[in-house]
Structures are given as C-alpha cells and as structure tokens.
Design a protein around this nucleic acid. Structure first.
Lengths: 336, 336
DNA sequence: GTGAAAGCGCTAACAG
DNA sequence: CTGTTAGCGCTTTCAC
C-alpha cells in the first residue's frame, strides 16, 4: 500500500496525492476529493520512512533511561513525551535495564532520531560523547555534564545538606545512608550532600551502605543494619529504599521516628501514606525541559548546519524537602 | 554523514561498507579494518531510515496509552519495551493524554511501525480497525475486542465479583463504587463484576460515583459521598482513587475499616503501606504478552503476505485479590 | 572479495 | 492546478 496505488486508484500522479494528503499546495476540490476517497478506500497510511528520508529528518526523538520501575522515570518520560509531541516529534524509548548491549542499543537508537536524551546511569561517557560527535544533538539528564553537551539535573547535594541539617536538629547523630553512590549520579550527589551536611555539623561522614533502588533491596540492607549497632537515622537513596527500611524497622519492632528516623527521596505516592519525610523533585518538568532543549538544538542545526554550536547549557532544577513524621517529632506549632 | 563518505574515506564502495557494518557477507580482513577505522573516525551512525526503507520494515513497534500516571501504565509499557527490544524492535510510545488529535496521532504513529498496541481508552474503534485494515498488525490491550483483532485483557469482572463476596462476608451491605465505567473498559468491567457479585448476594447494585483515576479525584468524590448518608464500604476503581477515599475518611474522622471499608485495584506500592485491600494484576506480563503477540503477527505477515490471517486471539490474564486490613477485620487465625 | 546499480516510499523542485 | 523526475541513505542482487 503505497502512494502509487492511491494515485492509480484516483487517476492522478503521486505528486498530487502527496499534495492532498499534506495540504502542501492548492489542489482542485474535485481532484482532492477523489484522492481522499481513494486513500480512505484503500486504508492508506503513509509510510513515514519515505517522508522522513525525503525531508531529511526523523521527526522523532529518543530518551534512554535505566528502567521504568517506580514513578520517577515514568514521570520524566511522560513529561518528555508530552513536550516532544507538542513540538511535533514522536518519542522512542529505550530502557537499558539489565541488558549488556546497552551502548550498541543506544547507538542504534541514535540512528533513528533527530535528537536524544540520555539519563543517569545508562551508558558510558564515551558512547554519549560519540553520538554527539556524530552530529545527533544530545541532552544529558540527571547525570554528570560532559564537555560540549547540554545537561539538566535536579538539586541533589544542596537538598541533601538541608536534610542532614534537619536530622541533626532532631538530635540524630548516628546517621546511615542506604544506597550506592557509584550506581547513579543522583545517588552520588545525595550522599555527597549528606556527608557535607554532617561534616558541617561536626559529625563524621557515614559510610554508605550499598543497596539497590527497590523496596526489597532497602528492606534487606536495613535489616542487616538494624541488627547490629544501629544508627539513629537512615537516609534512603530514594523512597523505595526508605520504605524498605520502614518495613525492616517494623519487622524488628522499632518505632519510627522514636527509635529510628527514616527519610527518602522523590516523594512517591506511598511516601505520603507511610508518613515518610522525603525530597520532592520536579520529574515532569525535568522531562519536559529536556524535550525542549533537544528541540532547540535540532532547530539550531537545521537553521544553519555550519554555524558553530552554541556553548553547552547547564540547568539544575530545584527540589523541595517534604517533612513528614518519619524524621522525628515536630510537636505542635511552636515546638521543634 | 552517510555511508558514501565512509566508503570514500576507506577507498571502497558503499556496498562494502554496508557488508562490513552489517557483517552480512565475507570481506577481506584488511578492507574490513579500513572500513571500521573510517566509520570510527567519522563518528558514523547509520541512518536507520535508509536501512528500514531498503529492508521494508521499521524494526519498531508502537504502544498507545492514555498516560503514564501511576504505576499501572508505566509497568505495562516497561514490560512491552523489554519484550519488544528482546525481539529486535525499537519502541515508540504515544500518550493520548488530553490531546484532542489522538486519532490522527495514532494513525501517524501507525506509519512508523511494523505493529501497534492500543490500550484502553485512547482512540475509538473505527480508528483502531482502520489501522488494522491498512495492514498494520494491531493488538488491543485492556479494551473490548474488535472483530479480527487480537485482544489481551486482565480479569476484571470475575475478580470484582470475588471482591464483592468478600465485602459482603465482612458484613458490609451498602457498598459504593468510585469510578467512571464509561471512562475505561477496565473500570467498566470492575463495576459490572461488583454489581453482579452484590446481586448474587441479594443486594442491590450500586450506582457508580463517577470520578477520575487520580488520588485527588477519589478524595473529592469520597468526601461528597461520606458527607451524606454514607456507605459501609467504598470500592475504588483503582488504588489511587481508594487511597483518596482513605484520605477523605481520615479527614472526617472515620476509622477504616471499623466505620468504613475501602478497597482498590492494582496493588500499587502505596497500597501496601496504607493497608489497602486491592486486586493485583500482572502489568508487566500484560505488556510483554502484547509485544510477543504483535511480533508474531508481523512474522506471520512477513512469512506469507497473502495467506489469510489466523483468527483473532483473545487472552485474559488472571488477577489476584490481595486482602489487607482496609476491607474489614480478619481477626486472628481461625477468625473471619 | 568487491563494485555498479536498482530500488524501498515519499517530497519537492521544475516544467508545463 | 498537475505531472515528471531527481534524490533522501541504505541493502541487495548481479556481474566481474
């Protein structure tokens, strides 16, 4: 089913069919009607490949993320999709998950899109830089900046520092961090901020207790931690981990926040119902901003392929501490 | 940056470049090395459009869903992506959200893919059927079957009936449903099953209280409901709605489950922490199955474009009642 | 082993 | 207004 068959069916040339379907040039009403009727009758759906090849653009963008578990990435992707489709681009997704050929998959994806967003802990810098060098605009999300490449992040370290201060104010002294700083730039930033905040309060920086980002991982790691010489407070790398810690605490009969304080990160829906103190980040906005930035880069290149690129942009979106009851008692108004 | 430039750079023909990069035919080691070096030096990424056009396939599938809010759709999409990419397809996503040109967007998407999954309440039957008629394999997900089109759903009505029986057993008699059966096939199925279950117990079927699928919508609708002549139990169309009802109940000082029972659907993470009785459905599996089914359809067509299509397949994936404390007291072992 | 050339489906000059 | 035609980047015969 191609434009040729529609043309034959309608007794016109393929150019006319294209013009009618795209509305790109005036066509006699009668001819136009014939073409539309033929297209309808044949259930013709234009093959986007032909058009894209002829136009020299995919009209599609891609986004690469580790996975879609938990609301965080899903929200980012949704924000991205919304903004991208408003800007006329389809969206290709790629979850690197636990696949071993992540780099190859991302490179292949780069051949399908006009621009690409690469999130956190998905592929190595060389791969990302190589794609950008190949001429495909890249935006890095929740990830360390790379020379010449736009980057958008959320405030991790600074907010973690505030969180540390808050915990110290509650009287907590022995504070443990649950998460793997090496596993994701976000987690690294949160841990660094926590450590800085504790140092600023004259407390020793904790060792991170490495664990995955799911509830089960947090629960298991916390269980081990609580079994020994336990801390006053556990800072989870994200809400899932913190919720796991809550479960582990409950399992050994510890009361939160009396016996143990717990905090998370992301403000997922469950955090609200668990009374979990956490840090909210603008996930949708993160995705939407990324979509706008790639779009702008693409437009720049289209406008003048030879002009030297504008310098790489950087942005850090603000995050917000959400205090609930898991970090300690706040008493009635006026209390601490 | 095309294959021509790589060929020139390496002093070979484009055919050779293609062979080296695809590994599709023997090439002298020396030549091959030259080509790879050239490709590397030029940061060459093959444009998938050319390949797809030549091969006659996109090597991409699409999935259309209402939005990505809440874990449900995100999990389905992730399951889809995982399975599709294992089968060698890229994944295009389209959230119809609150866009008014949903049908057009889906048709356009159909021109970019080898096969398409269309979920729940996204586009009308005519659009879906038209795309299928155009020759693009379609699989319907969480949606009423259409003649000649494969459909996968989860068990809604039957599980809702079980849920109804469970609530009745707890002694609840005045049972309200929070959700809009007209808004989504899943919700319709749940409501129908609930009504059937209540009728089977000799109780009158309730009027559904229409509301959106977010927590805020559930909370608002429940608040109204609880203000008047309130029910014994509220069955939420999904967990978010039910969690909203929990908030509304707490706001007016009602104890759950003593004064009011509440149930949800989906078993999101928050349900566990809110002690919400709910129904779990295999979301990942739903997406993965859909990916395998489109893949199979595409393979069938590729193998023999003229063979009449195999009859439409139907599948209903099982769901599972997860009893927690929000539906009523279950006492100690042996109690009810 | 390697190259030349014919498309894949569509858009966009360029002629009429 | 409408038709002809030359690509867009790549794969794939078919020759050599």
């Amino acid at each position: 089913m191609t434009i040729y068959e529609v043309a034959r069916h309608a007794g016109v040339s393929i150019a006319t069919v294209s013009r009618v379907l795209r509305g790109t040039a005036p066509v006699a009403e009668q001819t136009s009607a014939r073409v539309r009727a033929a297209a309808q009758a044949l259930h013709f759906t234009p093959n986007r490949l032909g058009r894209s090849l002829a136009e020299g653009r995919h009209a599609a963008n891609g986004i690469v993320f580790p996975d879609l578990v938990g609301p965080y990435y899903a929200e980012v992707v949704l924000g991205y999709e919304e903004a991208a489709s408003e800007l006329g681009s389809s969206v290709l997704i790629l979850a690197t998950g636990r696949r071993r050929d992540a780099a190859a998959a991302v490179v292949e994806l780069a051949g399908r899109v006009d621009g690409l967003v690469i999130m956190g802990n998905t592929v190595d810098d060389a791969t990302a830089a190589g794609i950008a060098a190949g001429g495909v605009p890249v935006v890095l999300l929740a990830r360390e900046p790379l020379a010449g490449i736009d980057t958008i992040r959320t405030r991790n370290a600074a907010s973690a520092k505030v969180l540390a201060a808050h915990l110290v104010e509650h009287g907590h002294r022995r504070i443990a961090f649950l998460g793997d700083p090496a596993g994701s730039p976000d987690v690294a930033g949160r841990f660094a901020g926590l450590a800085a905040g504790l140092r600023a309060a004259g407390l020793p920086a904790p060792e991170p207790v490495s664990c995955g980002l799911e509830t089960a991982a947090g629960e298991a790691a916390a269980a081990v931690l609580l079994d020994g010489d336990r801390p006053d407070a556990i800072v989870g790398a994200n809400d899932e981990v913190a919720l796991g810690a809550l479960l582990a605490a409950a399992a050994v009969g510890l009361r939160v926040p009396d016996d143990l304080a717990v905090t998370g990160w992301d403000d997922v829906l469950a955090a609200r119902f668990a009374g979990l103190t956490t840090v909210r980040q603008p996930m949708r906005e993160l995705g939407a901003t990324a979509a706008r930035w790639v779009h702008r880069r693409i437009a720049e290149r289209t406008a003048d392929p030879n002009r030297p690129l504008a310098p790489a942009r950087r942005r850090i979106l603000p995050t917000q501490l959400v205090v609930r009851r898991s970090c300690g008692h706040h008493g009635t108004p006026g209390g601490s």
